[in-house]
Computed example of a mutant assay.
Amino acid sequence: MSAPEAPADCIFCKIVAGEIPATVVHESETAVAFRDLNPQAPTHVLVIPRSHYENAAALAAAEPATVADLVAAATAVAEADGLDEQYRLVFNTGAAAGQTVFHAHLHVLGGRSMTWPPG
């Protein structure tokens, strides 16, 4: 199954294509990780699939191995930032859950204490 066609205005697809600059901290065959422009923690990195799916659920249904790759990339980012296995991984799926860019992405947050429940 191939990924659906991405909307022409997808900012994350433009980052993957190199059309928009980002502070890339990790790349793999299936994922790109870059620093969030509005960090919510000392480490706040977005890990995105190179393929375009609207959200994590759609990505998992179509490319479950890519979801595992995103988590592996997130682990590499956390290790590179010295988070010593103390970090949070977050997928927001849908506007009501806080998703603002409708290209599946995983937030890596760390470097400070996290509260529960989140926001």
Results as ranks from 00 to 15, higher is better:
G82N: 10
L59T: 02
A60H: 13
Q86S: 15
A8Y: 13
V45D: 02
H105M: 13
V101C: 05
T43E: 11
V32M: 07
A80S: 11
A33Q: 02
L89G: 05
T75G: 10
V71Q: 06
L89Y: 07
A76T: 08
V101F: 04
Q40N: 13
V108A: 05
A96Y: 15
M114A: 06
G94A: 04
S28Q: 06
S113N: 13
S113H: 12
E79Y: 08
E85H: 11
P42S: 07
A33W: 02
Q86P: 13
V108I: 05
L46C: 00
G110A: 03
A56R: 02
E5Y: 12
T66C: 13
A74G: 01
A96I: 14
E85G: 11
A6C: 10
V47F: 00
P4N: 09
A56N: 10
A76I: 01
G94K: 05
P7E: 00
N38R: 06
A56W: 10
A78E: 04
F91T: 09
V25E: 05
A72R: 09
P21H: 02
L70F: 01
M114W: 01
P64F: 10
V24N: 09
A3F: 14
F91N: 09
A58G: 11
N55P: 02
T100D: 14
A104L: 08
A62F: 08
A65N: 10
P64E: 12
T30A: 11
Y53G: 03
E19D: 15
D36C: 04
V71E: 08
A96W: 15
T100W: 04
V25M: 05
Q86A: 15
V47D: 03
L109D: 01
I15S: 01
G110W: 00
V90C: 12
A97L: 13
N55Y: 05
A61S: 15
V67A: 05
A104S: 08
G110P: 07
Q99N: 09
T93H: 12
D36F: 00
N38V: 00
A95R: 15
A78T: 05
H103N: 03
A74W: 01
P64G: 08
A22F: 05
R50D: 00
C13I: 05
E19W: 15
D36R: 03
A17H: 11
A78G: 04
A31I: 11
D69L: 10
H105Y: 07
T115A: 14
Q40A: 14
V101N: 06
A61W: 09
V32G: 01
P118Q: 14
A6V: 09
E29I: 04
P7Y: 07
F91L: 12
E79A: 13
A68R: 12
E63S: 08
A41L: 12
P49K: 00
V16Y: 06
P42T: 06
A97F: 11
L37Q: 04
V25F: 07
H103L: 05
S28A: 11
G111E: 00
E29N: 07
M1P: 14
E63Q: 12
N55F: 08
L89M: 11
A104D: 05
S28P: 08
L37K: 03
S51A: 14
L37N: 07
G82P: 06
D81N: 15
A6R: 08
E85Q: 15
H103D: 02
E54G: 13
E79W: 05
I48Y: 01
A17G: 12
A8S: 14
P64D: 10
P42D: 06
Y53L: 03
